[in-house]
Amino acid sequence: MRAEDLIPSRLPEVTRQAVLAPLIDHHCHGVLRDELDRARFELAMTESHAPSPPGTTHFDTPLGVAIRRWCAPLLDLEPHAPPGVYLARRSELGAEEVNRRLLAAAGVGAFLVDTGLDEPGLLTPAEMGRLGGAAADEIVRLERVEREVAADGPSAVDYMDRLGEELAKCAARAAGFKSIVAYRHGLGFDPSRPSRGSVIAAANRRLAEPRERLTDPVLLRHLIWTAVDAARERGLPLQFHTGFGDPDLDLHASDPSLLTGFVRLMQPLGLPVVLLHCYPYHRQAAYMAAVYPHVYVDVGLALTHAAAGSPAILAELLELVPFHKQLYSSDCYGVAETCFLGALYFRRGLARALAARVDEGEWSSIDAARAAHMTGSGNARRVYRL
């Protein structure tokens, strides 16, 4: 199976080549380096924390069908191989060979890897790059840095200083920062920088239970603004999880439009604000990218999990989003299938949208190729200074 076989044949050659060019996966996670039994594989292919109900399987999902359809041939199986056959072949090849085949087949030129997850056994950015034949850089998760600082037991005043020092060190090695404030509080937080007194008072409470998840809205705001200070020194973008995620999330609190106040305060600073995933709020995100010059968007893992339905999501984003504001990410995690399928469905959905516009005479083939290049890699190279 060749990637070019998945692109509509009527698409002009210059546009086809732009769609098929190496992608910049600007937001992903490591995949697991060890072999997985069926139970663990099924949990890794869903955002749910729970196994499927008795008598069912997580393979009975859009993503599960997509794995059997598109990943099976990369493991030398026929398309639509049954789940048991697929997993047996996966085990026969071994985790490293499976990861190598699937990561390389994604056609990614660079991985920007969020290293903030606690699960043991995930590939490092360097390992992702080696197996995928790509460059790799790190995205630093703010909440993990804060937890490590708090766990060291500083005083409240030292906590503030240490946090700034650690984020400055991270900024020197990272391609960007990421916040999961959507999970910890919601995106409707007070956007202003908190006062020093309020931070010290909240830090005293925090340091009494430093290993708990950070949920205090004052300290979350302080963390984000401290990261902004560190990011300004290096011109780093700041990513925010929005929309679709795992069950720890209150979905309504992850609407990216709730960040409007913060986005306005950030505009004079010139730092990019990147809205990740966004679905089902991708139209709101497209609006924000259209009206704020420093806001960028992707639809991330929604493409992988919607699978055959993903072209409609991408088409809705493209209704309004400026082409110089959209990025590509797979948000792959756990199993390398999610990396490959993210790239596959992005290319297929984008190609269909471009072909429709060219067919209707709305765009020239050069316009379509330019949009494909910007979205697939050009924008990420500019935003992350790759």
Rank of each mutant, 00 (worst) to 15 (best):
M1E: 00
A3F: 04
L6F: 06
P8N: 05
P12W: 13
T15P: 02
V19Y: 00
L20R: 00
L23C: 00
I24N: 00
C28L: 03
L32R: 15
A39M: 05
S48Y: 10
P51G: 04
H58A: 05
D60Q: 14
P62R: 10
P62G: 09
R68I: 09
R69Y: 03
R69P: 07
P73A: 07
E78W: 09
G84V: 08
L93F: 05
A95V: 04
R100V: 02
R100D: 03
L103Y: 07
A106L: 02
A106I: 00
V108Y: 02
A110H: 15
P120A: 06
L122D: 03
P125N: 10
R147S: 05
G153W: 01
D158V: 11
E166A: 15
E166I: 01
C170L: 01
Y183V: 14
L187Y: 09
A201T: 11
N204P: 02
R211M: 09
R213P: 05
P217I: 08
R221S: 15
P237E: 03
F240L: 14
G243A: 11
G243D: 07
P247A: 01
P247R: 02
L249E: 07
L249D: 11
H252T: 12
T260N: 10
L269G: 06
V274Q: 03
V274G: 01
Y281R: 09
R283V: 11
R283S: 12
A286G: 04
M288N: 01
V291D: 07
H294R: 14
Y296A: 06
V297I: 10
L301G: 08
I313S: 01
L318V: 00
H324N: 14
K325R: 15
Q326P: 01
S329V: 04
C332T: 11
G334I: 00
T338V: 04
T338I: 03
A343S: 14
F346E: 03
L354V: 06
D359M: 07
E360N: 13
A371K: 08
H373Q: 07
G376P: 02
S377K: 13
V383M: 12
R385H: 09
L386C: 10
